[in-house]
Structures are given as structure tokens and as C-alpha cells.
Amino acid sequence: MSTLAENYPGEIKSILAKYPPDQKRSAVMALIYLAQREGGYVTKQALREIAEICEISTTDVASLVGFYSLYYDQPGGKYRLQVCTDLPCALRGAEQFLENLCENLGIKVGETTADGLLTVEHVMCLAACDKAPMFQVQSGEGLAYYENQTAESALELVGRLRRREAGKDGR
């Protein structure tokens, strides 16, 4: 398995450059995101490597992965559809929206589609309350918002993601 240092030497350098030289530990959060790029979650080896870079213990890195909800120590779907069902969105039908989405995908909240492509989750307020129903898509590459959604628009996106994957395999 190739290491972070091999894959992202440049990124690591610029991340560390943000903080005082004696505060390498501050880089840990950004490095965890980096480690999630490949598989969408943090492997044990990555934990060790991040610990080395930041000069802290592997346990301390793992502890952070557990604390923050955008970090994962287990693989999930390649794309995580995270629907906000917090109060303001719920007042605008987000729970219904989530239900429909799950029905259409034939999975329950928290589950992953058979093709391993999509995991559907509900999350807390995403600061888009005026554009509910809405969700974000988290993948190794990062996060994107999808606002003012309908069952249709959501399925359209799902279709796009599926075709994109198929295309990748095709090549």
C-alpha cells in the first residue's frame, strides 16, 4: 500500500506550512482528509503515518477520527448522500424527502447500495435551511451541496453518479 508521503508530498508540505513549525499537530485534521481521499476512510497504516508526521501518538489520531463526524475508520459507499433532517429542514419536509430517497434506492438510512456506490445518511444542520430539502455528497474528493431538491432531482444526480462510475470502468 502506497503511503501518504508518496502520494501527496506537495499537499503535506503546504498543509504543514500553514502552522508554526513547533505546532505540527495542527495539521492532523487536514491530513486525515488527505488520508480519506483514496478509500473514503482512514486506514490503520494512515493513522500511523499521520501520527509520525504530526509527532503525536497513533491513538491520538484515531481519537480524532472518532470525534469528528466527517471522518471514518470504516469503508462506506463511494458517495455518502447526507440529507439534513435537522429542525429547520424537517419543517420543510426533509424527513419525507429522505424517506422517498431511501425507497427509490431500496435501502434504509445508514445502509449502502448493493453496488457499493451510495450510502444514505441523515445529518445535522448544514447551514442551508432556506434551501431545504437539501443534502451534501461526501466522497474522497470532498464535499458538495445539493439544495432545493426534489425526489426527481435527487434521482437524476444518482443516475449521473452511476453513469460516471460506469464510464470509469468502461475506460
Binding site: 500553514k18 505546532q23 499537530r25 495542527s26 485534521m29 486525515i32 504530526c54 469528528y68 466527517l70 471522518y71
Partner: peptide, 24 residues
């Protein structure tokens, strides 16, 4: 500096802990 999903990190001292690479 990017957080990672924790409302408590809006509290200023938790935010600072988080920035230091510790639990928020």
C-alpha cells in the same frame, strides 16, 4: 483551517483546541 463536523467547535475554546489538533 477546515473542521470536520462538530457543532461544539463553534464554541471558541473548543474551536481553538480543534485548531491545535486536539479533540474539540
Amino acid at each position: 483551517h477546515l473542521g470536520a463536523g462538530a457543532y461544539i467547535c463553534g464554541e471558541e475554546t473548543a474551536l481553538l483546541e480543534s485548531m491545535e489538533g486536539k479533540l474539540g
